[in-house]
Design a protein around this nucleic acid. Sequence first.
DNA 1: TATGAATGAGAATTCATTCAT
DNA 2: CATGAATGAATTCTCATTCAT
Lengths: 185, 185, 185, 185
Amino acid sequence: MTMRKDAARNWQLIVDTGRRFVDEGIPVQLNEVARAASVGVATVYRHFPTPEALLETIATPSLEALVAHAERAVTEDDAGAAFAGLLIATLDAQLDDASMQPALAAGTYVLPRTAELRDRLDTLTGRLLDRARAAGRVRPDVTDADLLPLMCGVIFAVRVHPGAEDRRAVTHRYLDVMLTGLRRP
Amino acid sequence: MTMRKDAARNWQLIVDTGRRFVDEGIPVQLNEVARAASVGVATVYRHFPTPEALLETIATPSLEALVAHAERAVTEDDAGAAFAGLLIATLDAQLDDASMQPALAAGTYVLPRTAELRDRLDTLTGRLLDRARAAGRVRPDVTDADLLPLMCGVIFAVRVHPGAEDRRAVTHRYLDVMLTGLRRP
Amino acid sequence: MTMRKDAARNWQLIVDTGRRFVDEGIPVQLNEVARAASVGVATVYRHFPTPEALLETIATPSLEALVAHAERAVTEDDAGAAFAGLLIATLDAQLDDASMQPALAAGTYVLPRTAELRDRLDTLTGRLLDRARAAGRVRPDVTDADLLPLMCGVIFAVRVHPGAEDRRAVTHRYLDVMLTGLRRP
Amino acid sequence: MTMRKDAARNWQLIVDTGRRFVDEGIPVQLNEVARAASVGVATVYRHFPTPEALLETIATPSLEALVAHAERAVTEDDAGAAFAGLLIATLDAQLDDASMQPALAAGTYVLPRTAELRDRLDTLTGRLLDRARAAGRVRPDVTDADLLPLMCGVIFAVRVHPGAEDRRAVTHRYLDVMLTGLRRP
DNA sequence: TATGAATGAGAATTCATTCAT
DNA sequence: CATGAATGAATTCTCATTCAT
């Protein structure tokens, strides 16, 4: 059952407004989003009962893109490159979309869609890791449960890093350290 | 000018109470701390104008210990071991004292004492890094501004990591990855 | 002008749903009723502009039954028994149908039908009272405007009464007190 | 430990304002009371965490007076008169102070003081009933758990009663019915 | 200096009713 | 006629901070 057209318009309006909040680092309060979207409070609450629901919705496109990337990656020939590519993509997604940081760091999800995507991402990441490990490109004691946390840690480190250095440059330098460290014990 | 004796007693009482909050993961609200310490709110506010001031005060002993460790480390012969030892100490400090996580991740400090300690820590870390790099134990593109962020990232990664695995074990595994990665590009 | 068939179906559906709410002690909110009846809110509002309109409609069958009882009662020979019988019926109606309590306690009605029924009930009650009084079965200072309030009071008393005693038993005991009291000053 | 003077002033101000609301039949909303009392909301919430707490506090003086009456009544010689007198006092209290109706009809209390007063009232009422019953002035099947409910029922009946007749007159007429009814089955 | 009462802006949420589809 | 999305005022409650005692 699909959404009514006007409802869909509001839904999108709210999501877009929420995204602006996220991008500008403003805490996503449902009331404020409603005001900024020129929409009744209850309209927001109807579509998104909690801030988490809205945040997950905002993150969904990026998450889907990341999952799509992972799905392409598992078909690549070069296991090591595919693996590294996914990690890069995971970091870039977090750099490009601030809503991805909570989405990836969270342990639980309120939307089934998000939970499902996260699940697929974990599965695919695990498969890529296995292949990379089999190819001798990853040390054996690193498990698939480590990868996303480590990528979140990298992003966190970048956020903590002071200095005016370009965030992306720092990120990739840190990733390089990580990748090197992941190779051999 | 030193504190009056009763004032000092209250000061300590508040700090101790605040530590209990930190240890138990309860958000350090000045009002609540006051209640728990059986002390007037204003008393807390006089000693610690903001939650940050209290948090930094709570973290100070651990921070001092870490600085002391760094000061001993710079005198060690084995530059590589000294360097690794400091990183381990930094992580352990954050594991053992929850107030160290904000204290190390923060970019600014409200207390001069904390700022000064952080400064010394940065200087000493930089010196250890230089020696380790000179000894060929660290890749050249890693700067002293990277180390603390990376250690904070490790702790963050551990926090994100699901599973029931022992936190300290995970931490040390991640540190091992980091150290390996830091060695050679 | 009669209702369209589908409209009539919805009308009944809404009334039935409303009754379920009343029976289960759930406050009759038009929105909630609509949801429970799987019907649009506006549909409910068109049929029943206010909660009162719905409540009165829900109460109507019981009210009609009570009026019917009164109509039979005025034809009975034994004036005292007829009178007592009506009071019992009034109480039982309130015990059996929770929507009758507001319907009988209300001073005003939004539906003409309810107002009319109430009117007939009052008239009949008055006539029964007169006959009972004429037969020397009721003290003279009690007027017909007293009877329904007193019955509502009995029900209220039963509701206030704590204890696990059977509601109907308590009601009839209280009614017995009332009837005795009504007999002679 | 007694209240600070300014706190006591506000406490009283809030209670007085609350009483005005009760007297005028305005629902006692903590926020509105705060506005009307020209006092911060939180001040009201500090003193009275819930509307019930405020309502019970408002009712306390009348409740105390009623208990005091009951205490004098148990020492009276004429058991029947003492018993009737208490019932009259119970009704008058509810007529004179609107906050007494919820206070007497409630089954539970949030303030220990109110619970205690209610308890004493129940005990004393029971004792008066026993004496009256022993004196042959009350039918045997009426228990002490019936009296307060019945008095609440009387008040309810008076409220339901339409007409312009004086409330107190109606009340006493109804009480007369009750008392007669209570005498002999 | 110590106390803790007071403040009031602000955040979260609900609900009766209207209106576009 | 039917739908159900939208509205936004109203309500409840919390919390960081100030100020009178």
